[in-house]
Amino acid sequence: MSDMETELSAAQRIAQVRDVLGSRLTIMAHHYQNDNVVRHADVVGDSLELARRIPDLKTEFIMFCGVYFMAETAAILARHFQKVRIPDLDADCIMAAMAPASRVRALLAHLASTGKRVVPLTYVNSSAAVKAVVGELGGAVCTSANAEAMTRWALEQGDAVCFLPDKNLAMNVADRLRLPENERLLLDVRGDGRNVDMKAAANVRLFVWPGMCAIHHRMRPEHVEAARRDHPGCLVVVHPECRPEVVRMCDAAGSTRRIIEFCEQAPQGSTIFVGTEINLVKRLAALHAPGKRIVPLIESACENMGKITEEKLAFCLEKLLTSCKVSVPEDQAKLAKLAVDRMLEAGA
């Protein structure tokens, strides 16, 4: 590191690069990023909001502050002259890792042997390789904001849907759609599908991959019970990656955008317990104080989101041409883009 780099703060170094690049650079950040990162962002949003913004960007460099699958999605949607970067290439997603592309392909092939037209629907929290498999097989991507609408879309395309990789989001969608229990099946994905109960599969309309978000799965019914017991009249809103039994106990559940709106619309004087990643909860608490009291249901932080720091953002911006590159093989990107485009075209 040079003497200049040691003398300047990370924020000053970021400002220097921005001054040089000007309109050639867009910094995007997910709501779960730390405030020291978010303050440098041109665009802040949830997965759906950020994906929708990519096609309209005209900048040469897109710096994506989030986890790797999000940066991959940006690379899939970016135009040929655009370069996508992420401050830490190791900012992975535990949920995405629960659905390897080879296993997804093998299991979908096994489900096809039932004679059903099983349409794959992958949550955006999945690798580009998985999105490519889904795109190739006529499926689409969804986000927490449009999972219900995209599941309806997928059901209209075939006989059944295979929703992956988040079992909690899938089951919460099934509840919203009032899909009977006997039409849902939590998949045993061991042995590439050979352990699936094919007799039970005959009547199934929703096949559910058994992945989960560790951050949201930590939230349990007793946390909601404690909030209501200790703070009578409080409101509780959670992310739909939480367990269905938690979601059923709450006043609302939705994407990060929906959670933000819920807090905005709550009456002055409210105490609101929020069940999602702690960075967003703290930001909402600061934004709405003192008129509303916003409290984490539990303090749950995403370690991988936390890998993106202001210092790493500064370093990556300074090494923009040579480091932090996000790339997706062309053939894979083409198929993955089919899946993402189907979501965007559905207008869900």
Rank of each mutant, 00 (worst) to 15 (best):
P329Y: 11
G138W: 05
F61R: 12
F273L: 12
M219A: 02
L164P: 03
C213K: 08
V20Y: 09
V274A: 07
V38C: 11
M198L: 14
D19S: 12
L235E: 11
L107I: 15
V118H: 00
E264T: 14
E60K: 15
D197Y: 01
G233A: 12
A174M: 10
Q82V: 06
T271L: 05
T309C: 08
D197L: 03
E136S: 12
L155E: 08
K83E: 15
V133M: 06
G193V: 00
A145C: 02
S127R: 04
L137K: 00
D46I: 06
E311G: 03
E136I: 06
I27H: 00
K307Q: 15
P165Q: 07
C162S: 12
A301I: 14
A75R: 13
H217D: 15
V124T: 10
I260R: 13
C250E: 05
M212Q: 10
R52L: 14
M95I: 03
I62F: 00
M249W: 05
V247M: 03
F207T: 04
V295E: 13
L185R: 01
K167L: 05
A128C: 10
V189R: 03
E311W: 03
P296H: 12
H80T: 14
A200S: 15
N34I: 00
R152Y: 08
D46Q: 11
S2W: 09
C324Q: 09
E183Y: 04
R283P: 12
G22Q: 09
E318A: 12
T122K: 06
V295W: 06
K167S: 11
Q12S: 12
L335H: 04
A226M: 15
R152I: 11
A91I: 05
